[in-house]
Design a protein around this nucleic acid. Sequence first.
DNA 1: AGCTTAGCGTCAAACGCTTGATGGTTATGA
DNA 2: TCATAACCATCAAGCGTTTGACGCTAAGCT
Lengths: 143, 143
Amino acid sequence: MGLGALDRVTWALRRAELAVQTLKEQRLRPLGMAAAHYTLLMSVHSEPGLAGAELARRLNVTPQAVASLVARLEGRGQLERREHPRHRHVQELHLTDAGREALRAADQVIADVERHITEGLGPDQSAQLRTLLDQVSKTVRNA
Amino acid sequence: MGLGALDRVTWALRRAELAVQTLKEQRLRPLGMAAAHYTLLMSVHSEPGLAGAELARRLNVTPQAVASLVARLEGRGQLERREHPRHRHVQELHLTDAGREALRAADQVIADVERHITEGLGPDQSAQLRTLLDQVSKTVRNA
DNA sequence: AGCTTAGCGTCAAACGCTTGATGGTTATGA
DNA sequence: TCATAACCATCAAGCGTTTGACGCTAAGCT
C-alpha cells in the first residue's frame, strides 16, 4: 500500500515550523523569555489597547491561555491592564516602558533568526516562500 | 521603530502550519483519532519494530509522551508491544490489523487534506514549496 | 423601561507534555 | 571477570493549556 506520508508537503511544513520554533525558543531562553511571551508582547505592540479575548482569537488560543500569560507579564511589569473607557468589565492591554525594552531585546534575537533563514534562501526565494505559505493558509482557511 | 514581525517568513510559516494542523485535527476528530495518534501510527508503520525511545527522537518529543500515546493505542488494540529478541527490557512496537485499518482510514482523510492543498497550489509550485521548506529545515538545523 | 442576547473575564477540573530521578538490562573495557 | 558506562522504560511532580461553567456588563429588541 502507498501510505507514503514522509514526502508530503504538510510534513515538510511541520518539520520546518518545529525546527524554527525550537531555535527561537533556544535563543530566547537566555533572555528569560518564552516564545509565547514574545508573541504576546509583539501582538500588543502592533495593536495596543485590545482586550484579552480579542487577542486570544488572533493568536488562535483560548482566553485563559492569554490571561495566564498576561498575569505573568504583568507581574514582571512589562504589561499593564487598563480599564476600558466604555466597558468597565473589559480590560485594555498596553505595554509598559519595561515591556517595550524587553520586546526590543527579544525582537533583536528573533530578527537574527529570521535573517539567518532568509540569507540562506536568498531574497527572491524568501519572498516566494512567503507567498506560497500565505497561499496555503488561504487555501486551508476556506476548506 | 521597526519591529515589523507581521510580514516575516517565520510568521507566515507558523500561521500556515497552525492552519493545516487545525484542519487535520478537525477532519480526524470524527474518526476518534487525534493527529498525534495518526503520526505515531504512521511512524510505526513506516519503520516497524523500533523502540519507544527511538521513536521519540524521530518525532521530537520525550519518551514519556510516546509511552503515553502507546499505552492509549495499545488499549484500543491498534498497537502492540513485543519483547525485543536481544534486549529483554526493550519493547518493539508493531501495528495490529486493527491498527493498520485505523491508519488506512485516517490516512485517507489526511491525504485528502494534502491533495486539497497541492491542487490549490499546482504541481510545480507544490514541489517548489517542499524544496524551500526542506531548505529551511536544513538551514535551521545547523544554526 | 424591561428583557433577551452577546461578549468578556475568571474559577475549577482534566488533559497532555516536560523535567527530574529511579531501576533494570546490555555492551564496553580494564 | 568485574566494574563502568550507556540505554531503555517507568514513576512522580510541575507547568501550561484546553474544556466547561459561572457571574458580570453593555447593547439590541419588543
